[in-house]
Write a protein that binds this DNA or RNA. Structure first.
Length: 348
DNA sequence: AAAATTGGCAACCGCGTTATT
DNA sequence: GAATAACGCGGTTGCCAATTT
């Protein structure tokens, strides 16, 4: 049978920690350590708290060498770069920043850094939703053959010079090499995405995310889709997201919704040379000779991805694929109906 | 000056993974 | 090997302070 019950949920205190509780926990752990058993600890330390709560309090606030206060430019750069590469893997990111906790970095990203990067020109005003995570990272490619582009993981310039304006921001953060500027809005005439003009400057200029190298233009698919659900906000608009992912032609036949991480409600863009061509709601059959490969992810990060994300049965390539599940969002789209019932999508 | 909104952060919750019985 | 609890992570919430209306 299993272990003994963890704690009497009805008899544990919740909410903010008092200074007395803090000192009890701190003194106990400094004297006896955690003993690798957080569940038993609160009782031993004389605390009416759940072990989980004690662990969190210790790790995020009480343990020695925790840094509080302003993040430096260097820390900003590291966070941005890692977020762009691996997404919201806060514990992995925190491991690269001594003294910072994953919770701290997550809060910092959500409340400050993201806004700092987005600047003031990222689309129309939207309803108050300060708890929503609106900026998603670019994806990992889902190809089974990866080649990290030979470029530094951490940019060397100060953050301020990297993100001077919107177009620079889009290029740097989203990893686009081509001149982007995204149009402020794109009008659609139906409820699906297949009517987006393939000549749209959005898609013509799409390139590959930072860290991804394309070896054969003619055999790469860029797949777009949208989440099936659509949460309606109080003003009646519908917040939705377009997702994209990469794969070789040979892979597209085997890919399924789960692997892509989003519904195939959208369409695909096929890259012939420099021209993106739409293939609505279908799969494409292709040759084997395309590869997307990784060459240059920081070794520590790789190791942590391996150790924390996927377990023993996965090889490295699968791990990267796993990552793409949660990192496949590119644009945040705010769809709303206008008076003539035309759908307008804002990209930001 | 009061009410409403926004910002910031600590803590909680749920879920996938790991460990124990 | 199955069942169950603990662990650890990331997303979300709640609360309070600051700012704006």
């Amino acid at each position: 049978m299993g272990r003994a019950p963890c704690c009497d949920k009805a008899n544990v205190k919740k909410g903010p920690w008092s200074p007395e509780e803090d000192s009890k926990l701190k003194e106990y752990i400094e004297k006896y350590g955690t003993g690798g058993n957080w569940i038993a600890l609160p009782q031993k330390a004389g605390l009416k708290r759940c072990g989980k709560s004690c662990r969190l309090r210790w790790l995020n606030y009480l343990r020695p060498n925790i840094k509080h206060g302003e993040f430096s430019d260097e820390e900003d750069r590291i966070i941005c770069s890692l977020f762009a590469s691996i997404g919201s893997r806060w514990s992995v990111i925190a491991a690269q920043l001594p003294g910072r906790t994953d919770n701290d970095i997550k809060n910092y990203w959500n409340t400050k850094l993201k806004k700092k990067l987005m600047g003031m020109h990222m689309g129309p005003p939207r309803p108050h939703n300060h708890h929503k995570n609106l900026l998603k990272p670019p994806p990992f490619p889902s190809s089974s053959h990866h080649n990290y582009q030979n470029q530094p993981l951490i940019p060397s310039e100060p953050l301020s010079s990297l993100y001077k304006d919107l177009s620079n921001y889009n290029r740097s953060f989203l990893g686009f090499e081509a001149p982007v500027p995204l149009p402020p809005q794109v009008s659609l005439t139906s409820n699906n995405f297949s009517n987006i003009s393939t000549n749209s400057s959005i898609f013509q200029t799409l390139n590959y995310p930072a860290g991804v190298k394309e070896n054969n233009n003619n055999n790469t698919l860029l797949v777009f889709g949208s989440e099936g659900s659509c949460s309606t906000s109080s003003d009646g608009s519908c917040n939705n997201q377009i997702s994209y992912d990469y794969c070789s032609r040979s892979e597209i036949n085997n890919i399924n919704q789960e692997e892509m991480g989003f519904d195939h409600q959208g369409f695909m863009m096929l890259n012939y040379g420099n021209q993106w061509t739409e293939r609505p709601n279908g799969f494409y059959f292709g040759s084997e000779n395309n590869t997307l490969e990784f060459t240059d992810l920081d070794e520590d990060v790789k190791q942590q991805l391996i150790s924390t994300r996927s377990k023993n049965n996965y090889n490295n390539n699968t791990i990267i694929n796993e990552s793409s599940k949660s990192n496949s969002f590119l644009f945040n789209v705010n769809e709303s109906k206008t008076e003539d019932d035309e759908k307008v999508m804002y990209f930001y």
